[in-house]
Amino acid sequence: MIHFEHLTKTFGRYRAVDDLSLDVKPQQAVALWGPNGAGKTTVIKCLLGLLRYEGRITLNGFDARTQGRQARSLLGYVPQELAFYDDMKTLESGYYFAQLKRADMARVPLVMAQVGLADHGAKPVRALSGGMKQRLALALALLADPPVLVLDEPTSSLDTAARSQFLNLLCQVKAEGKTIIFTSHRIEEVEALADEVLIMDTGKVIGRCPAYRLAEEAGLRTQVKLIIAPDKLDAALHVLKADGFTVRRNGVGVLVDVLPREKAQPIHSLSRADIHITDFEVE
């Protein structure tokens, strides 16, 4: 469906993407995962024809560079920074982009309903909440019923509730058979949506794996902050170090470095040592 062959993008001497090759199969969901500055968004922009690049990108055989219009007509794009025409009404935005995409006008209200914006059509876009805007972006991407969805950090700007709601929506869309390529730095998003993950750092692909193995593959750590009574702090540090945790003192508590799925382990260790934990936070 989507082929990247030796995609390289340089800004001056800086290589934002360095020799990326990728083959996204129909109905597959591929995540580009990595920290900020890894080059994920640059890959998306190259795919959209917003940037010049070296190498080759094709969608269903259409060259993204020389046949940009045909290539882009196969995909719906949800950008990271939502930028709509704020003074347009929500529904009118739908009709405007439907005209640009040469989509069927009758689909506009249907898609709006699908993303749960049916009751907000008369509001100007600027009056929508962040979650609604994100759903509008998805609706606009789906207007022409394209086979491919391109999502750039789809939930980064949402709060927890809106995030899970939106992820559900994306999973539905995926279930309808869309091919998805998206960027993310959130492991739960990748785990929920992606089939395969490319792990990127400073422009390079440093690993690829099935989505469920991402955490291990990436050696991903979470920090747990444990609040402990001041007279027990030294003892707690000692116990945790003895149990093999990477730990350091932080104000009224300690910070423990753990794998994401082992966040309860330091609590167990301290309980065993009879050290009382007053509170904890996960960062």
């Binding site: 529904l91 006008m105 008369a122």
Partner: peptide
């Protein structure tokens, strides 16, 4: 003129501005 199709209910078509 709005980008809405002509048969859209008028409540939706009038411009907010």
């Amino acid at each position: 003129r709005s980008f809405m199709p002509r048969d859209t209910p008028s409540t939706l078509r009038t411009s907010i501005n």
